[in-house]
């Protein structure tokens, strides 16, 4: 099999193989909660797996950068101080991850390499096989087509599946993906013209469901050239509830805080947890001075990071994959999510 060649595998056969993987690996996939909402979590059997889902509101970056994780524990009670590292995790398979989250991982990869190389992130990254599901069911807030975040991707996954009903059409994105297919008893055939046509139809149907609301280009130019009126930032800052939701759910946001949690004088843990540039404690200096004491400055900062040319040049793309999550979680509903803000910036510039 060659990377780049699309294959077709019977859906049930593929899922049966996935089920077999659950014995050796942690298989994480979409499952229905009480009440019908879908969230990703470890699966012990196929019983709870669902293939009919809009994306999880809780971003899948959490499987690589958890909201809270223990970096190490220490124990000073013995003769020698002891440092306890977290256990090595079992190999993992992330099944059904949507394209925007895959693209988000690509963004995070960029951040966590080089000067900010992060062992724990990369241990999880290397440990996890990504089998993504091209998006045939966008949410009403999705706009990945505006941000090159989906609904189908060319890279970033190990395997990308397209649900054709009875079969999965598979794009192979990496050597690990190819090996996964080869090592399992899955009769695969090369995709025929019929399969390819169906794929195109699905893509077009998905595109048609998405209303392009994110006018990023104009907003990028205005932010880069500092052409947004201060009053507008002021207004947006007043609207913000500083809940931090927008950054927590964003697949492109990587900020965290590290705190020590002593348990008595002799032992404790060092913990890392998500932080948010929308919190005032995020930038407060030890002196008490805070360069971004007001919500106005924090909202401005968030969009500067997401849309200014300085960052686009550094990261290769804007800090948004169009997953639409910030639209849902924003307490200032409809006012401060990225699609609302780029619209406001564009109108303000006219």
């Amino acid at each position: 099999m060659q990377a780049g060649t699309r294959l077709v595998v019977n859906k049930q056969v593929f899922l049966d193989n996935l089920s077999l993987c659950m014995q050796k690996m942690t298989v994480i996939g979409p499952q229905k909660l009480r009440g019908g909402e879908v969230t990703f979590g470890p699966l012990r059997s196929l019983r709870r797996l669902t293939l009919d889902y809009v994306n999880d509101l809780d971003p899948l970056k959490r499987f690589f950068l958890p909201q809270r994780e223990v970096l190490f524990a220490y124990d000073l009670s013995g003769k020698k101080p002891r440092l306890l590292q977290p256990e090595q995790e079992k190999p993992r398979l992330l099944f059904g991850i949507r394209s925007c989250d895959v693209q988000g991982l690509a963004h995070m990869d960029g951040f966590f390499q080089g000067a900010c190389y992060d062992e724990l992130y990369w241990a999880r990254r290397r440990n996890t096989l990504i089998i993504s599901m091209a998006c045939n069911r966008p949410n009403e807030s999705c706009f990945c087509i505006c941000c090159n975040g989906g609904p189908w991707l060319e890279s970033g996954f190990d395997l990308q599946l397209t649900d054709l009903g009875e079969e999965f059409l598979i794009d192979i994105g990496s050597r690990a993906g190819r090996v996964f297919l080869e090592e399992r008893p899955m009769p695969a055939v090369t995709a025929s013209r019929r399969h390819e046509t169906r794929r195109r139809e699905l893509m077009e149907a998905c595109d048609a469901q998405m209303v392009p609301t994110a006018y990023l280009a104009k907003a990028c130019i205005q932010i880069t050239n500092n052409r947004v009126r201060e009053e507008l930032w002021e207004e947006m800052g007043s609207e913000c509830f500083s809940c931090g939701g927008c950054t927590h759910v964003c697949p492109c946001c990587t900020c965290f805080d590290v705190v020590d949690c002593p348990e008595g004088a002799k032992s404790g843990t060092r913990v890392r947890c998500w932080d948010s540039c929308q919190y005032s404690g995020f930038t407060r200096e030890a002196s008490g001075h805070n360069p971004r004491a007001r919500a106005k400055e924090r909202v401005k900062r968030r969009f500067y990071h997401k849309l200014s040319y300085a960052y686009i040049q550094q990261d290769g793309h804007p800090g948004c994959v169009g997953c639409g999550r910030c639209i849902t979680v924003c307490e200032a509903f409809g006012l401060l999510d990225i699609s609302a803000v780029v619209k406001r910036l564009r109108r303000d510039g006219q």
Binding site: E37, D58, Q67, C243, T328
Partner: peptide, 22 residues
Amino acid sequence: LAAAPQRDHPVSRGTLCIKGWN
């Protein structure tokens, strides 16, 4: 490890305040 908002909750509709998140 974490708190997550619930989209299908009729009141919160997928939001959490700063206290809910942390």
